[in-house]
């Protein structure tokens, strides 16, 4: 069953204008051989909004997020990010678009041969976004302060705990001041306390910088604390969509399975 609410705007019925869509996923399909991972999946992300895609492990959440960022090409359907169709962009245009879209990997993907400071400087220098060493220092310091790890600039990723690595990965994403952040399982593998800290940090980033976020997760606490809206990914489709409470209170067995 495909819920009628899927991909529909969630703003209230009041007279306010509809919020701007910064990311749209329209009827996207993706298969690997006979394994149909995404089937007719649709979703809209609005400016300043946090949307969580909730699904079981192996349900295609990471495939979806990799299609959005252009690491995988969908077999069918259309993905637009900040008004640009990802599939039709040249390499240069895609690289330019990626400066506005942060991606927090599940494994953090910090460059382990570089210090924390060098990790943060890498995307900055690739796009010539800092014009002087002083400006670089200021941006690195600001990004590290945002995640509460200002003292770690000289450390290597191997010297950090799991939660610290996650924060540094987020700082590396934030340093480019993206409009959209894609979080791939941001709390997986973390203890409950650290996971809650990361959840609060996600909210804080949203409040401070007004970023939109698409969060892939199967962690209900993460969903509850970070989501303005939740989309249930079941059998490759957007099964249902709504606030955490709306989906939790749905009587159907599929939704109940997630929130039980």
């Amino acid at each position: 069953m495909l819920s009628e609410t899927c991909s529909a705007p969630v703003h209230s019925a009041a007279a306010s204008p509809p919020p701007e869509a910064v990311l749209t996923v329209v009827h996207v399909e993706k298969s690997f051989g006979d394994n149909h991972v995404l089937r007719d999946f649709s979703l809209v992300l609005h400016r300043g909004e946090n949307v969580v895609v909730l699904g079981k492990s192996g349900s295609g959440k990471s495939v979806l997020i990799k299609c959005i960022i252009g690491l995988l090409l969908p077999d069918a359907g259309r993905i637009t990010v900040l008004g640009q169709d990802v599939a039709t962009l040249s390499h240069a245009a895609l690289d330019q678009l990626r400066t506005k879209v942060g991606f927090l990997f599940q494994s953090n993907a910090l460059y382990d041969s570089m210090t924390v400071r060098e990790n943060l400087l890498f995307p900055l220098r690739r796009h010539w976004l800092a014009h002087s060493p002083a400006e670089e220092d200021q941006l690195v310091r600001q990004a590290l302060e945002d995640v509460g790890l200002a003292h770690t600039a000289g450390l290597l990723p191997a010297e950090l705990s799991g939660g610290m690595r996650k924060r540094i990965a987020l700082a590396r994403t934030l340093i480019l001041r993206p409009d959209i952040i894609l979080y791939d399982e941001p709390t997986t593998g973390l203890d409950p306390v650290t996971a809650r800290e990361i959840d609060h940090l996600i909210r804080e980033v949203q409040r401070k910088y007004g970023t939109s976020a698409l969060i892939i997760s199967h962690d209900l606490n993460c969903v509850r604390l970070t989501a303005d809206r939740v989309a249930l990914l079941v059998d490759g489709r957007c099964y249902a969509e709504g606030t955490y409470e709306q989906l939790r209170d749905r009587p159907d067995p599929v939704s109940h399975e997630f929130f039980a």
Binding site: H91, F103, S107, A109, L110, P123, R126
Partner: peptide, 21 residues
Amino acid sequence: AELGSMRVTEQIDSMEVSGTN
């Protein structure tokens, strides 16, 4: 070993999404 390690820990993908070939 270096590139293999970067591949399996998604560092190469990370480089790509940060706009680096």
